[in-house]
Amino acid sequence: MMKKVLNVSLIATLVLAANGFAADVKPVAVIAVPAAAPVAVSAAPVIFQKPVALRGTVGDVQIQVNLRPKAEVDEGHEGEYFIFGNSHKILLAGDIEKDGVLFMEESVNGTDISGQWDGKLEGDVLVGTWMSADGSITKPFTLKIIPQAQKQTSSKAGKGVVSKQ
């Protein structure tokens, strides 16, 4: 950037000198302007670079997961999930890599880790394994991304559904 400014000043000076105006030309002060700070870009697939909802199962329990990038995009993702028929939300936080690999921890009480999610995005489906914090229980999960239009029209769909636990 600074070279361009210097080159433009030099060319202008030469043009003025060639036209006989060199006596009136004063040196030009060049001010360096710092480049804008780099913007953090999410390493997650495009679908996870904005809030997204997914529905599916953990074991045989029906759930809905809502994920979003954290305020500082390079710090990963956060969100929550709920079991249909239960209004309690379980918090999630972790990372989704560019290749769609997911690692998240959950917290039932907002403080302690109660489980872990390891999975991978395959098309528009996130598949993997949920594991309890102590590692004694594992369950497969399959979550399909909910298209925007369906999220808005189906928000009441889960009411009255009783889940198996």
Results as ranks from 00 to 15, higher is better:
45 P>D: 00
46 V>L: 09
46 V>C: 02
46 V>S: 06
47 I>R: 02
47 I>G: 00
48 F>H: 07
49 Q>M: 02
50 K>I: 00
50 K>G: 02
51 P>A: 11
51 P>Y: 05
52 V>T: 06
52 V>A: 04
53 A>K: 10
56 G>P: 11
56 G>V: 15
56 G>D: 08
57 T>E: 01
57 T>C: 01
58 V>Q: 05
59 G>W: 06
62 Q>M: 13
64 Q>W: 05
67 L>R: 00
67 L>K: 00
68 R>L: 07
68 R>S: 09
69 P>Y: 02
69 P>W: 01
69 P>V: 00
70 K>T: 12
71 A>K: 11
71 A>H: 07
73 V>E: 06
73 V>Q: 07
74 D>T: 12
75 E>A: 10
76 G>R: 13
76 G>H: 14
76 G>D: 10
78 E>W: 05
78 E>C: 10
79 G>V: 04
80 E>C: 07
80 E>I: 03
81 Y>T: 13
81 Y>F: 15
81 Y>K: 14
82 F>P: 04
82 F>L: 14
85 G>L: 04
86 N>R: 12
87 S>L: 07
87 S>R: 06
88 H>F: 08
89 K>Y: 06
89 K>H: 13
90 I>L: 13
91 L>V: 09
92 L>G: 08
92 L>T: 13
92 L>E: 14
93 A>E: 15
93 A>M: 14
93 A>W: 10
94 G>M: 08
95 D>N: 13
97 E>V: 07
97 E>L: 14
99 D>W: 01
99 D>C: 01
99 D>Q: 00
99 D>G: 01
99 D>V: 00
100 G>T: 02
101 V>E: 01
102 L>K: 11
103 F>V: 11
105 E>G: 12
105 E>W: 14
106 E>T: 11
107 S>N: 05
109 N>H: 03
109 N>W: 01
110 G>T: 09
110 G>D: 07
110 G>L: 12
110 G>A: 08
111 T>P: 04
111 T>A: 11
116 Q>A: 02
117 W>F: 12
117 W>A: 00
120 K>G: 03
120 K>S: 08
120 K>E: 09
121 L>C: 03
121 L>D: 04
122 E>A: 10
122 E>G: 03
123 G>A: 04
123 G>H: 02
124 D>W: 01
124 D>C: 02
125 V>P: 05
126 L>R: 05
126 L>M: 15
127 V>S: 11
128 G>S: 06
128 G>R: 02
128 G>N: 03
128 G>C: 11
129 T>A: 00
130 W>L: 03
131 M>W: 08
132 S>P: 14
133 A>H: 15
133 A>T: 09
133 A>M: 09
134 D>S: 07
134 D>N: 13
137 I>Q: 00
137 I>L: 05
138 T>Y: 01
139 K>R: 09
139 K>H: 04
140 P>F: 05
140 P>E: 10
140 P>W: 05
140 P>T: 08
141 F>S: 04
141 F>I: 03
143 L>H: 08
143 L>W: 10
143 L>N: 09
146 I>K: 11
147 P>R: 05
147 P>G: 02
147 P>S: 07
147 P>N: 06
148 Q>C: 05
148 Q>A: 14
149 A>D: 15
149 A>H: 15
150 Q>E: 15
150 Q>P: 06
151 K>L: 06
151 K>G: 00
151 K>H: 01
152 Q>H: 06
153 T>Y: 01
154 S>N: 11
154 S>L: 10
155 S>M: 07
